[in-house]
């Protein structure tokens, strides 16, 4: 066998090489690892550079410009005026803290709901109902974000279903901060459940059995084995829920009553005020918060286990 194949190979190679330019190219690529890598990565890298880093750079640069308030022209002279306004005006601090609070609350609520749900799906449900549950969690993602938000607007309306749940007109939370947190938690829940579910699926059943075998009851097993093991999944989910909540401006417009979050300010300054530079300056706040969050997560070492 071995003798045969050593004789065979060079002959085969020759015929392949002779077969045409496509074959020749592929065999050339096979020999040149660098060229192969370049061919594979250049498109995504270009995308990353131009579309992502490029737009981020433009964001930061334009945050240093200002706008002539009468003509609406951009004044391209670098100044920190926008950032000074943001830092000195109390309202921006208030709104930033509120947005952070909302994002944190949404994340916590989603973690609390997602943990038992994902656990049930991954470890308790039969394979058949597990499939159904995954579908049930994914289906809302097929519906338009706006439709879902407006559906909640109707649910939360005065004398609406939520009010009745609380015992009559005006008893429910109505529109406002609470409604915003509620609806955002609903909207982003799948983004929390799915990574936790995936993490729990990867968690071998034998670890849970070993814990029980060593004398731990359910609660202890969850605390000492399950939670520490799925921390990376929870963090992955929280990056979704946190950043999506931090950037949202539509839900809060629909069910937030008079609440404003950073996203609203960014949008209002582009839309109503035509002040792109100020919007850009405002938009750096969530960017910085997310960068800080990711750095903190990295420090904790959770990313390495992803």
């Amino acid at each position: 066998m071995t003798a045969l194949s050593t004789v065979d190979r060079p002959a085969g190679d020759d015929t392949i090489a002779a077969r045409g330019p496509v074959r020749r190219l592929s065999s050339w690529l096979h020999r040149h690892r660098g060229a192969r890598l370049a061919g594979l990565l250049s498109a995504p890298l270009l995308w990353l550079l131009v579309a992502y880093l490029g737009s981020l750079a433009v964001l930061f640069v334009s945050a240093l410009w200002t706008v002539n308030s009468f003509t609406g022209d951009l004044v391209r002279q670098p100044t920190f005026a926008n950032f000074r306004t943001i830092l000195t005006e109390e309202v921006y601090r208030t709104v930033t803290l509120r947005s952070l609070g909302v994002a944190a609350a949404v994340t916590v609520i989603d973690v609390l709901i997602a943990l038992p749900m994902a656990f049930f799906m991954a470890k308790v449900a039969s394979p058949r109902s597990r499939r159904l549950l995954v579908i049930a969690i994914l289906t809302p993602l097929w519906a338009s974000y706006l439709v879902k938000a407006y559906a909640w607007r109707v649910m939360l309306a005065n004398d609406g279903p939520v009010d009745w749940l609380f015992g009559g007109a005006g008893n429910g939370p109505g529109y406002g901060l609470l409604a915003t947190v509620l609806v955002l938690s609903y909207l982003w829940l799948p983004y929390m459940i799915l990574p936790i579910y995936a993490g729990l699926e990867r968690l071998p059943d034998s670890l849970l059995e070993a814990s029980a075998d060593l004398g731990a009851r359910g609660g202890r097993t969850v605390r000492s084995v399950v939670l520490p093991m799925i921390v990376p999944s929870v963090i992955a989910g929280s990056i979704f829920t946190f950043s999506l909540s931090l950037g949202d401006y539509i839900t809060v417009q629909i069910v937030g009553g008079k609440t404003q979050l950073i996203g609203n300010l960014v949008y209002a300054n582009i839309g109503a005020a035509n002040n792109l530079p100020f919007s850009a300056a405002l938009a750096t706040i969530p960017v910085l918060i997310m960068v800080g969050y990711l750095v903190a997560v990295r420090r904790s070492g959770a990313l390495e286990e992803l």
Partner: peptide
């Protein structure tokens, strides 16, 4: 009875060591 109420211990085929704990913590777990 549940596993935690039985005076038996198991060595699993895949060992089932807790990867987030040190050897010492694993052994001390029970």
């Amino acid at each position: 009875l549940a596993p935690f109420d039985r005076d038996v211990n198991t060595v699993f085929q895949d060992y089932a060591l807790f990867p987030h704990m040190t050897v010492q913590q694993n052994v001390e777990y029970g």
